[in-house]
């Protein structure tokens, strides 16, 4: 059953996330990134940061928490979802210890060739003062529930 386009415009409750030193290290290791700014406070200070910072695509962890809410709300299982595109616009670095508030909005729903395309916008802000860290814009493709094979290569 296709997704009812009237769900477009839904805004999900803010998700809170605290950036921890060990998660930064774990994520950097997972992408094989040895940049010292992720693990070495002195190196991060050399770039003008107060302490270690998160890699640019670390932001996806925070954004995904909102995707989970949205998918639960719309009854979509993970295996039916393909990430089509992703864009981040960063206002500043994301240092360890930061507590952020991420707000997820379903901007649009469009049926294309039997699939649904969801446009999702996430604003990541400082929990304390509300200043921006990042804007995430993503498109997810959702295959129909009865999908049982075929070519999903594009």
């Amino acid at each position: 059953m296709p997704i009812d386009p009237s769900v477009a415009g839904r805004v999900y409750p803010p998700q809170y996330y605290e950036v921890s030193r060990e998660k930064i290290r774990e994520f950097a290791e997972a992408i094989g990134d040895a940049n010292p700014a992720y693990v070495d406070t002195a190196a991060a200070r050399g770039y003008g940061h107060g302490d270690v910072v998160a890699p640019p695509t670390f932001m996806m962890i925070i954004v995904m928490n909102g995707f989970d809410l949205l998918m639960k709300d719309l009854g979509i299982e993970f295996a039916r979802v393909v990430h089509v595109d992703q864009r981040f616009t960063y206002s500043r670095s994301l240092p360890v210890g930061t507590r952020v508030e991420a707000t997820t909005r379903l901007d649009g729903v469009r049926a294309v060739a039997g699939n649904d395309l969801l446009k999702i916008r996430t604003e990541v802000r400082d929990e304390q003062d509300g200043t921006d860290f990042c804007l995430s814009e993503a498109t997810l493709l959702v295959r129909p529930e009865d999908f049982d094979g075929g070519d999903a290569s594009d």
Binding site: N35, A37, Y38, D85, Q86, R87, F88, R92, E137
Partner: peptide, 11 residues
């Protein structure tokens, strides 16, 4: 790493 201001791609 904070020198990346915008970053996006299509999969």
């Amino acid at each position: 790493p904070a020198a990346v201001v915008e970053y996006g791609a299509r999969f």
